[in-house]
């Protein structure tokens, strides 16, 4: 089950809107597909993300995967804990494994993302 209050991308990022900010991470499905995450590279606070552009990299033991910005906006926080504990992405992808907090440039972008039901359907077909 994916959390009902989140929005999702086809590339398996999630977004949780909190006021005029969005918290961003990758889904449990993505974390499971990647396997054990051993390295996460995130943008610096203050960087401006463009929706759909790559914002970082997540690496498992075997694979390197790009992270795609689900929304546009300035990075207001990055999860520094992932530097020392990248495995949080596997163990708690929707909680302690969060990646970025972004100041939303255009809140309407969120409405264009998948809701939980649509995302579950996407992963069921995968």
């Amino acid at each position: 089950m994916v959390p009902a209050d989140l929005r999702f991308t086809k590339e398996h990022e999630w977004v949780r809107v909190e006021g005029d900010e969005a918290v961003v991470g990758i889904t449990e499905f993505a974390a499971h597909q990647l396997g054990d995450v051993v390295f996460v590279e995130l943008p610096a606070v203050g960087r401006t993300l463009a929706q759909h552009a790559t914002f970082g990299v997540v690496e498992s033991v075997k694979a390197v995967s790009d992270l795609f910005a689900p929304v546009s906006g300035d990075v207001v926080a990055a999860n520094d804990a992932l530097g020392g504990q990248p495995e949080l992405v596997n163990s708690d992808p929707y909680g302690e494994g969060w990646m970025l907090r972004v100041k939303l440039a255009d809140a309407a972008q969120v409405d264009g993302l998948l809701d939980a039901a649509a995302y579950e359907q996407l992963t069921a077909e995968a």
Partner: peptide, 11 residues
């Protein structure tokens, strides 16, 4: 088989 429970655990 490429992995079972996970590469780190198997390693």
């Amino acid at each position: 088989p490429i992995q079972y429970a996970g590469i780190l655990e198997e390693h």
